[in-house]
Design a protein around this nucleic acid. Structure first.
Lengths: 106, 106
DNA sequence: CGAATTAATCGGTGAATTGCGATGAACATG
DNA sequence: CATGTTCATCGCAATTCACCGATTAATTCG
């Protein structure tokens, strides 16, 4: 994954409202989950929520499925694991030659 | 770690230049590494680089140590592992009750 | 003390982001 | 076909971001 892609994803994750939306979708994973539901769970206008959803969509973090007159949204778990891997790689790269740091006692 | 903190960190990581700076610092970990060095490695003005450094500093990703007339910068590995943990937790939370999803057959 | 060096900070500009209400497209239903 | 629902998208204002050159503070050194 390219630096630009990672940066994009990080930027998409870099807003509390979008983290909330993701968490909400995660918690509703089984049921219908449309824009209105998300909007109801937040103190924001529908258009604003729709914008945030678009950002998440563009970053590939969620997926849209038209369903009658509403759109159903769901988290893209496949991408999440990709991102986890990429992020791990990033951190590893940054840790470079710091050997065993996390178990570091004192 | 709070949602706002995570969002902050993600936003700090959400710019290719800042990823570059981090990588550069990682690669130079042993030597002197001051603002000028970073600036030389990028096609940006010194003031711009200084700004980006400030963002990384504010997000707690790097550390400043004054050293004579220059400042030495280094990655905060302690924070990186914290962030790794927090991010892992975030992803786990988002995966929620999707049981064994990556091996998901149908 | 005066000159040089380094880098943070200031002021400014243009672009992007965040928020809103209003509009309009797509669809279901009477 | 008319009505209602849902939601993406379109302006629009306010704020923040990314970048720059210029200035200034701190420090070293002659």
């Amino acid at each position: 994954m390219q630096d630009d892609d990672i940066a994009n994803i990080m930027r998409a994750l870099g807003h509390p409202v979008r983290l909330n939306i993701l968490r909400f979708l995660a918690s509703q994973q089984q049921r219908e989950c449309c824009c209105g539901d998300v909007t109801d769970s937040l103190p924001l206008a529908q258009s604003t929520v729709s914008q945030h959803i678009k950002v998440l969509l563009d970053a590939g973090l969620i997926e849209r499925k038209p369903h009658g007159t509403r759109n159903r949204y769901m988290i893209r778990h496949d991408r999440l694991s990709e991102i986890g891997t990429a992020f791990g790689g990033l951190l590893d790269g940054l840790n470079f030659q710091a050997p065993h740091k996390e178990a570091e006692p004192a």
